[in-house]
């Protein structure tokens, strides 16, 4: 069985790429980096690997147990079946799309994923803001279909590692657009900038990992527009560089809501979308987008039908 963790080998390249982007930032975009923000992002990355080593064992145990019930068998030398690798990679990316979508639409999952989004910057160091608490969600369930299909947990882990490595380079403002054919199929800096945006137009869009086609298939794709500059982060920006707060704030908020709410609403605070409240006093990405659409069509009824008119809306 191959014992190989691709992300580990990638770390030196991550560091070099961040340094190169810092030089770019110095020359071209001094606001792209903020030292404290970068410090927090890098610590989140390191802490995530430590948390994975500490708590990842449970997921591994579940996967190995589930593998016993596989429907198809690639044999004892499963790693030598060459076509299983690209197939596993594509299916794992499909799995990633749904885990990630759940990560934005179910508060329990969002509590773990939010720290990837809580920076107001978007640079290569942002890519390293990985979760510490993913093991405390039900995210592992999404991998079970792959395991039951007969893909070995190690093969899925390696595919997932390459998926994560791919996603590193798209966290940058230094690249505007890739060639047309590439933008059509692959996740790119442009598509993923949209994912990190808090503009109403861009909320909860572009969940893709490697292939953007999933968003186009499942109706969550939004193209980046040159007339709508992106603001990065989360709806309620933290306003703090406290590392521990950035890891746990949503967990703390969620548990507080569950404790304080009436019994029949408790489960909703766990499983409904972030921002949902039983008295409607808070905002979700859906209510924010709805209000934005209503405002736009009342101030400029033509804007919705005519994208050229929308270009001048701000004037």
């Amino acid at each position: 069985m191959p014992d190989f963790s691709p992300t580990q080998y990638a770390v030196p390249f991550f560091v070099i790429a961040v340094l190169i982007e810092m030089v770019w930032s110095r020359l071209r975009a001094p606001d792209a980096y903020e030292p404290m923000d970068t410090l927090v992002s890098l610590c989140l990355g390191l802490g995530s690997t430590a948390a994975g080593a500490l708590f990842g064992g449970f997921a591994l145990y579940v996967f190995i147990a589930a593998y016993e019930y596989r429907l198809f068998d690639f044999g004892a030398e499963w790693w030598s079946v060459w076509w299983a690798w690209p197939l596993c990679f594509v299916l794992d990316d499909l799995k990633y799309y749904w885990v990630h979508r759940a990560g934005h639409r179910i508060r329990w999952m969002w509590a773990a994923h939010v720290n990837h989004h809580s920076s107001q910057h978007y640079n290569l160091s942002t890519a390293l803001r990985q979760t510490w608490t993913g093991s405390f969600t039900f995210g592992i369930l999404f991998a079970l279909p792959l395991i039951l299909l007969g893909f070995h947990p190690a093969m899925i882990a390696i595919a997932g590692g390459f998926n994560l490595i791919y996603q590193f380079w798209i966290h940058t403002e230094a690249i505007d657009r890739m060639p047309r054919w590439f933008e059509a199929v692959m996740n790119t800096p442009s598509h993923h900038r949209v994912h990190h945006a808090t503009n109403p137009r861009y909320l909860d869009r572009n969940y893709a990992g490697v292939f953007i086609i999933w968003d186009k298939m499942f109706g969550t794709f939004e193209a980046e527009r040159t007339d709508e500059p992106i603001r990065y982060g989360i709806i309620k920006q933290l306003g703090s560089f406290n590392l521990i707060w950035s890891v746990f704030h949503e967990w703390i908020g969620m548990v507080g809501d569950i404790v304080q709410s009436p019994w029949r609403h408790k489960l909703s605070y766990l499983l409904r979308e972030p921002g949902w409240s039983h008295d409607g006093s808070r905002e979700t990405s859906d209510t924010i987008r709805a209000r934005w659409i209503a405002r736009r069509s009342s101030t400029n009824p033509v804007a919705d039908r005519n994208p050229i008119a929308a270009d001048h809306e701000a004037a």
Partner: peptide, 9 residues
């Protein structure tokens, strides 16, 4: 290094 480079206005 980021601080020394004067990143962040």
């Amino acid at each position: 290094l980021a601080r020394a480079m004067g990143l962040g206005t």
